[in-house]
Design a protein around this nucleic acid. Structure first.
Lengths: 375, 375
DNA sequence: CAGCGCACGGTAAGCGCTTACGGAAATCCC
DNA sequence: GGGATTTCCGTAAGCGCTTACCGTGCGCTG
């Protein structure tokens, strides 16, 4: 090689080695906490490191180790904030951010960091952006609604991928909440306990696996119980509060008779629905019962308090990381990601729980939190 | 070198080159969009790339380019969610997340991605964690309250650092909202327009530069106007809603006479204060006027709607990235980060704006949004 | 005291890219 | 049509680490 000269802008391991009077190998060993170098040498190295303010370069380390200790997280950015009434749509990001927090906390324990990237679904360079990201990490966690199944399959051939709220059995591992069970439970609650006979489900994004499961489970159970479940294009939302508002307004404008209860694909949509209903002087749950899904923090501060299904948000993130981490480490000792079907990719389903509050028609909490008086 | 053999788990540039019948140099040129290779060659390469599902390794590229195209963002994680009443404290994260969104959007335009990492301030390995992160990026953006000035100075010697809401003139560049001007304006509004004579400022973290400026500007202006501004340990909060609650409860328990108006260090604290006031049957703004700072989305949904100071949150993030990017690119052609005092590190102050709503005593909006009826 | 084992630490190869440099072939000029 | 360009592309030298593979020099044992 060549003899490094003056200590350039940022010191390298060579500078440290020279200063400590050892070889770069020893420095590296100290950096990695090997017990090889004897205490005295180690101290010299440590001294040199702190004197120089040396920080090992992650890229070089990654290249050598074939491990970057970085996982990519891609999620969808809701378009156009600050456009009128529903500018607070940004709150919906809370869901994604919460999941990310869950991922991060576990990741840190293993020395991994998160490369987060939000994308506009309509970005035409999307596949490229995601590939760039993939190149910077050891694995990818994709939130719902960022890539088509085909797109997912494509990157999954290159790097380990875990999808959130996606479909199981696909080309990637997957982690999701148990939508089916609790939607059925919700249906039973609404039909049997409250005796509603005419209900509806406001759908989320049409191609969201979670949404599909929720809709099907709900409708099936409602019908099995002999009640009616309205469906069709009129009930197609997109997970946003805005879509909830539009749907209700549209229905009322058409003079349609609203169902007695409306189950929404998520809390966000329920928020919009309740808003639109209030706008027309309709009482929830008196005139129409409304329920959500997710149990975001604001759900219990709504009036009426929102009956919804609680998903273990942070835990979903945490599990996603764990699964991904397994894939990453397994990878290094094995064949290409999807190739060997040693064991199929996991599809983890986390339990959810129906949270009965007021918006379904249940009696209000006897101690309404003062909290709510200020909202 | 050696002749690469069978296409291992993940294809490298060598595999692509062999398959396309060209040299790795050509592949690299195609990857980087040079106009060098002629169309025909370029196509062959592209074909090989997609057939192999090749994705260039970010680490190798970074090592070679001395540029990772990654910036680190470190912010403080509020400790312990889910502990009773103020579990919604997590909402405070919105502030940080919003800033991050701002950073990200601009960063993407330049091909950079964000390595985000939240930290517990009481983590004892904090300096190490941050160094690890520093090693993985080209520069760091530090939110308020993650590191002591000394700590900041220390990493700033290694990698370009931009702090958010920090103190200007320090060892790092800095971006913040103009707290002073609008706090003075707020003081004038409270004293002159509403004629309050006895006011107080509930402080945020004692060592937060933003908090210090807000407190000083407010108190100074109030006193200059001949009114009284309560201060002291009794009014020391920590930016959390919980601290707002504690302070009010404490004061009331002591039988103290509350001031006529309370300016809080941020919206979060104001939320807690209003909550605690409501708890004791006190009317806002009738009995006590309350104001916040930040103008988070929930501010206008509170009842009464919160008078506060609007910070251009996303823009703060955006500017922070731009400043950092300048430092990063300048760095490559110059001397060590802090060394050459060619031009001093920027301290960018973005304009803020007083938003008068109801909580200060101003008349309610004539068209209260239906929206609020459901909160 | 020869010989062996071991703890310590140096040498150099290689991780997957980018790019300076230079060679070969194609294009040009008078 | 021979030299001067120009265009296209291959060779090889790093980027800053990790680590396999030795070479020391020490303390033992017999």
């Amino acid at each position: 090689m060549d003899a490094r000269t003056g200590t350039g802008p940022t010191p390298t391991i060579y500078d440290v080695a020279r200063r400590a009077g050892v070889s770069i190998a020893s420095v590296s060993r100290v950096l990695n906490g090997r017990d090889n170098p004897r205490p005295e040498t180690r101290d010299r190295v440590h001294k040199a490191i702190s004197e120089l303010g040396f920080v090992p370069d992650g890229a070089a380390r990654a290249l050598s180790n074939r491990l970057k200790q970085v996982v990519g997280v891609v999620f969808r950015r809701v378009y156009g904030t600050d456009d009128g009434m529903f500018e607070d749509e940004t709150e919906s990001l809370l869901f994604g951010d919460q999941i990310n927090r869950g991922i991060e906390i576990v990741a840190q324990r293993r020395g991994y960091d998160l490369l987060v990237s939000s994308v506009n679904i309509d970005e035409h360079t999307l596949p490229n952006r995601i590939l760039t990201i993939a190149g910077k990490c050891d694995g990818l966690i994709l939130h719902d609604q960022v890539l088509s199944p085909a797109g997912i399959a494509s990157i999954a051939r290159t790097v380990p991928v875990v999808t959130l709220a996606g479909a199981g059995g696909g080309p990637s591992a997957n982690v999701r909440g148990d939508s089916a069970t609790s939607m059925r439970e919700l249906a039973r609650h609404l039909v049997q306990d409250h005796d509603y006979r005419r209900l509806a489900y406001i759908a989320g994004h049409a191609d969201s696996p979670d949404n599909i499961v929720r809709g099907r489970s709900f409708a099936a159970e409602v019908q099995a119980l002999g009640a009616e479940c309205l469906t069709g294009p009129a009930w197609q939302g997109d997970y946003s509060a805005g879509s909830g508002v539009q749907i209700i307004r549209g229905l009322i404008a058409l003079g349609a008779t609203l169902p007695r209860a409306i189950a929404c694909a998520n809390d966000q949509t329920a928020l919009g629905v309740i808003y639109a209903l209030a706008e027309h002087g309709l009482d929830v749950p008196g005139d129409v019962a409304v329920t959500g899904f997710d149990d975001l923090p604001f759900a219990r501060h709504l009036r009426p308090q929102l009956t919804t299904v609680r998903q273990p948000i942070q835990e979903i993130g945490a599990r996603a990381f764990e699964v991904l981490h397994d894939m990453i480490t397994a990878d290094s000792g094995g064949s290409a990601p999807t190739e060997g079907a040693d064991h199929p990719l996991p599809d983890i389903v986390l339990p959810t729980r129906l949270v009965r509050r007021e918006s379904c028609g249940c009696p209000p909490d006897s101690h309404p939190p003062v909290w709510r008086r200020i909202f």
